[in-house]
Every structure is written in C-alpha cells, then in structure tokens.
Design a protein around this nucleic acid. Structure first.
Length: 291
DNA sequence: GGACAGGTGCGGT
DNA sequence: ACCGCACCTGTC
C-alpha cells in the first residue's frame, strides 16, 4: 500500500493559495499560451501582475504555490473554481489535433482578466511581437500606473486618457499610439457589464467600433475579459492549424475561420483556441512544423 | 541587416 | 462584401 496518495487538492493559506498535485494547472502553459502579457519567468517561478495586484507562482511536480497578498483575486483570476478535467474530457471526444492539443496543454486555464487592461494590451498586440508588446506595457505601467510594493499597477483609464498621444509614441507604440489614446477614451465611457450582458456577436460588433480593435482583438477581449467562451480569436498560428487540419481547400477569411470554430465547439471554442494556439506555437517552435 | 511580429484601417473594386 | 496594401519599431 502506498504511503501517501497523490491527491489533488486546493487550500487557502495566509499568504496565498496552494494546489497539491494539480492535474490542470501548469503555470508556464497558462501564462505562455498567449492570453496575457504581464508576467515574467524569474527562474524560480513566474511573477504575474494584474491591475494593481501581484502574485509569484512557483511550481514543482507535487504542488503549485501562488504567493500573493490577494488570494481571493487570484483564485478568480486563475479560474480555480472551474473543472478543467471535464473540459478536457469533452475535447478528447473530438479526437485528432483537438484531443492531442488538449492533452498537451492540459495545464492551461483561461484567465479572468481586467477589461480595460485586456483591451489596451491587445490593441498593442496587433502586427507586433510578444517581447515588444511586453516592453511597451511595462513602460506604460511605469509611467502612468500607481506605484505598488512590487512594481507598478496597470494604468487607470483616466490616466491613459489624460496622457497625450505623443506619450504613446515615446514609449514605443508606433502607429498604434492614436489607437491606444482613442480606445482609452472610448473605454472611459464603456461599461463592461453592459457588454457582458449582451450576446457574443453584438458585444463583438460594439468592441470593433474601438480604434485598433478588429475581429481578432475583439475576440480576445470577449474571451479573456468578458468570459465569452464561445469566442474564437484567429491569428497567424490558428490560421496554420486551420490550413493544415480543417481546411477543405477553399480559402477562408479569418472571420470565417472564427465562425467555423465557434460553431464547431460552441461554448468550448475559447478553450479549444488556447489549446490549439499553444500546441501549434510550441510544436512549431520546437520542430519547425505542425505535426 | 532584412524579415518578421497573435492585425487593422484604408481606399479601390 | 471583398481584396491589396501600408504601417512603427524592437528583436532575431
């Protein structure tokens, strides 16, 4: 008889949260599957910033330790109340690359992120690379965000509205500078609860009125900040997956591919997108091809 | 040292 | 609606 069972469990402790033998929590996968930019691999773990909150996550095979002054916030942020085993089981039934990607990325969780932070971050992400996006966001926080004991908060919408367009040029936004400024202005009079309350397509249409927000960025905001899990962002990586595994040969626009996957996976579409994105990017980075 | 980034807005069909 | 194209700039 084994001495101790490797039983999954979750407990709140005074300075954070401890997950024992988590089957569906892998901090590297969660942060590097493309849904978030404010994190850093410190060597001993991952530092994560969200709004004015901070957590340090260290993980070994037996446990994940989320050290933070705001355990309640990060419980929700990491979506710890949801059963990802159940999601994975449902996706396994699809077989093929979906099942393979879900198995490969079983530690992924969909983060519950702040609306304005997500919107601005993904406006910056368009036609850009992750390293540079992270640098811009860091300078944005350093210059406009409130100082905290562990860095700077993501700036308030009011601070971003008050900053001149030229400020955004200076921190490296490039041609996105006017988009960021104008989107901040739009966000200052937009209630995310209103968007969350409407249907996915209607909310998407509304989001696409913001400058710098096209279909893909709108889907990211819907999925990462408004919990619209039927949304399916289509970028270059997902395009490769579609071309290699789902295409019938006739060319499709990204919007068509997005609707195709949303229809195929329904309310699980957003989760599938994360698994496929991570699987595609990791395997192409490793082998130079998509198995 | 040129191509490439998790696309978008624009003007022309 | 559906093309095709220009676009800041850090990183490799």
């Amino acid at each position: 008889m084994p001495m101790a069972e490797k039983k999954p469990g979750i407990k709140r402790v005074k300075d954070g949260i401890i997950l024992s033998y988590p089957e569906n929590f892998d901090i590297k996968s969660i942060l590097e599957c493309g849904q978030v930019f404010r994190y850093k691999n410190t060597g001993g773990g991952y530092a994560v910033w969200s709004k004015d909150k901070y957590a340090l996550v260290a993980q070994t095979p037996s446990q994940a330790e989320i050290v933070t002054a705001d355990p309640g916030y990060f419980y929700d942020y990491f979506d710890l109340g949801r059963d990802y085993g159940e999601i994975a089981t449902k996706l396994t039934a699809f077989g093929g690359i979906v099942a393979e990607a879900a198995e490969y990325g079983k530690g992924i969780r969909l983060l519950n992120q702040d609306f304005a932070e997500t919107a601005i971050s993904f406006v910056l992400s368009a036609n850009n690379n992750i390293k540079r996006i992270q640098g811009i966001i860091e300078r944005l926080a350093e210059n406009l965000g409130d100082k905290t004991p562990y860095g700077h908060a993501f700036p308030s919408v009011e601070k971003m509205v008050a900053a001149p367009e030229n400020f955004y040029r200076e921190i490296g936004c490039g041609y996105r500078a006017p988009f960021v400024k104008k989107t901040a202005e739009a966000l200052s009079v937009l209630d995310p609860r209103g968007l969350a309350g409407m249907g996915t397509q209607q909310a998407k249409k509304r989001l696409m009125e913001l400058p710098g927000v096209g279909g893909k960025v709108a889907d990211c905001i819907l999925l990462f900040a408004l919990k619209k899990t039927g949304a399916f962002p289509v970028d270059t990586w997902i395009q490769k997956v579609y071309d290699g595994h789902f295409s019938d040969g006739t060319p499709k626009t990204r919007e068509q591919i997005s609707r195709y996957f949303s229809g195929l996976f329904g309310g699980l579409a957003g989760y599938v997108q994360q698994y496929l994105f991570y699987f595609a990017r990791e395997s192409i980075a490793k082998d130079g091809k998509l198995s």
